[in-house]
Design a protein around this nucleic acid. Structure first.
Lengths: 150, 150
DNA sequence: TCAAAATAGTTGGCATAACGAACCATGTCA
DNA sequence: TGACATGGTTCGTTATGCCAACTATTTTGA
């Protein structure tokens, strides 16, 4: 049964490359986050909130974390003036989390730094290859709408 | 000065795609690790040790962690029979960390599961695109020999 | 050659992130 | 309207990683 190259194949160079790339990318993100005294998770939250407001539970869903975790995280971020809790118009139990002006500014500059910090990795690619890589990656990402939308 | 698209550019879709891909990949890895009662870091260690033996400090360097962290991690892994400490022939202070048979077996099956768990993400790509993506990723990875080799 | 400095690893104390259970307040539904 | 579901918070616990201090070796250089 070994001549059939099926699901039990040994090593897959694409998987390895994806995993390797993921670790290096996360390492860079962690470093940049730490330089701003932000946890990686908070940086993710700031990034997510750049173009929307979300409730605690939606945020938790996005990140794959528990609501209680987000509750505390938002708490500390709010104390630092990065986000604010706005009462939901439609549901008096819920709060909408939004960036403050300071939070937005921080999110922007962190994003810029991440881009720069990642640049050495992508610099060796010609513009056409950069576009190709981007498009290929996007095709491997979970499509919004597919999957765990519940 | 805004017509010159220089280093302060706003959003970069390639960066976004890399970051997004990294988070999704790490999420999959974490889930698979947790299913085996392994921390993500320990899974990394098992993966690294599949084709070599390393000292504590080399392992720490690989992972960007402190030696003390690795010392404890190896301790627990050794107690679980996954790795063993072998005295170094050349340096009586040092230990070489190696997989046990059980550790090797676990590493292999975890790797297989990761491949399967990641398959849905890469399945939509044709073989030629898979190869292209792999090669482009490899070109963005830190070249061994370049960088922090000291 | 031998004392000083460097390196390998370990230990212990501390901070932080995340989990899960228990708990109110509000919403929804039969 | 009463039962159940949902949104969020609080609290206690666990795990991961850091740092500083320490011992045992190895390396260096005067």
């Amino acid at each position: 049964m070994s001549s059939y190259a099926g699901a039990m194949e040994e090593a897959d160079p694409l998987t390895d490359a994806l995993v390797q790339s993921a670790f290096e990318t996360i390492a860079v993100l962690s470093r940049v986050s730490a330089e701003h005294d932000l946890s990686l998770t908070l940086v993710r939250v700031l990034g997510i909130l750049r173009d929307r407001r979300l409730r605690i539970s939606a945020l938790a869903g996005f990140l794959g974390l528990e609501r209680s975790t987000l509750s505390g995280l938002v708490d500390r971020a709010a104390r630092r003036g990065l986000v604010e809790r706005l009462p939901s118009a439609s549901d008096r139990r819920a709060v909408e989390i939004a960036l403050t002006a300071a939070g937005r500014q921080l999110a922007t500059s962190v994003a810029a730094e991440v881009r720069q910090a990642l640049a050495p990795h992508t610099a060796s690619l010609a513009p056409a290859d950069r576009r190709r890589l981007q498009q290929l990656l996007e095709r491997t990402l979970t499509q919004p709408g597919t999957g765990a939308a519940k």
